[in-house]
Design a binder for these strands. Structure first.
Lengths: 145, 145
DNA sequence: TTCGATGCAAATGTTTTGCAGGACC
DNA sequence: GGTCCTGCAAAACATTTGCATCGAA
């Protein structure tokens, strides 16, 4: 359990920490820090915004939680187990498509082979135009240059 | 020239617009909005921050300039012609590696075939650990899940 | 008992907006 | 001359920080 890992690392299993972890477990996917603040505040109104941010930071250092950038909005947080997928985000409708991680493996492998770069391909979403929006309003894709 | 395209679209070729375009041309790559504000202010101190932001937005609508997200900082702007490369950003040292766009083509093709998604792979950088940082401090790569 | 964690409030940094006036075509 | 663009200032938004206090181990 996450709480145990925190204690093993010399951290303290406070109410706030349990609350944030619970909010992430409950999310079954990703949630923005703002949403987590809201969920936590629903149960414990005394837990402040800054504590939630500091707790998330703490969890990330311990590899218990991560954040990803899905678009121009706030970053999204999730537990480590939920990392095994990538996101496509449509810049027209804002829709998010989750894709299997296997699709990105050839790219990761190429980047490692050619540049020695260990890619964390899920950290940023791939921007573009989804099928529906492409059908409606032209390609919407940016020209190559 | 960019100014002509603006006029053709019914826009006006103001001093501010010329200045912002010049700053982008001069950049020979990408520059943050903040930097552009600084460059423009160096020549025309009267041109305000908000005008620069509004001008960049205008240029993006006309497909003259684009912005990309290289990391957690502010977005980076460049002229359309500079789009033909992708970025790898090291989350340890913050270094940026530019890679040829060809590497991403198989992925783009797969996304289009399988999901009908027209990817704009350059809009977000690929996060990860560069060779040097990996050699120094372990992998640094996030576990798959 | 100690040092990490917290609450509050204020600051941060980037970007957006309202509105009245000015400039471009 | 119409309306698109601009300057100023203030707001919006997500996140961070300082500092005194509290509490888990």
């Amino acid at each position: 359990m996450a709480v145990r890992a925190v204690r093993q690392a010399g951290g303290r299993a406070t109410v706030a920490l349990r609350c944030v972890v619970a909010a992430l477990v409950d999310a079954e996917g990703h949630r923005s820090a703002e949403e987590i603040v809201g969920v936590v505040a629903g149960e414990y109104p005394d837990i402040s915004e800054s504590t939630v941010y500091r707790t998330l930071e703490r969890l990330e250092e311990l590899d218990i939680a991560y954040h990803v950038h899905l678009g121009h909005g706030p970053s999204q947080w999730h537990l480590a187990g939920w990392r095994s997928h990538q996101h496509l985000i449509c810049h027209k409708c804002g829709g998010v498509i989750e894709v299997a991680p296997g699709l990105f493996e050839p790219l990761s492998h190429e980047l490692e082979t050619r540049y020695g770069f260990l890619a964390d391909v899920g950290h940023f979403a791939v921007s573009g135009t989804c099928m529906r929006c492409a059908a409606v309003g032209g390609t919407g894709a940016h020209p190559a240059g």
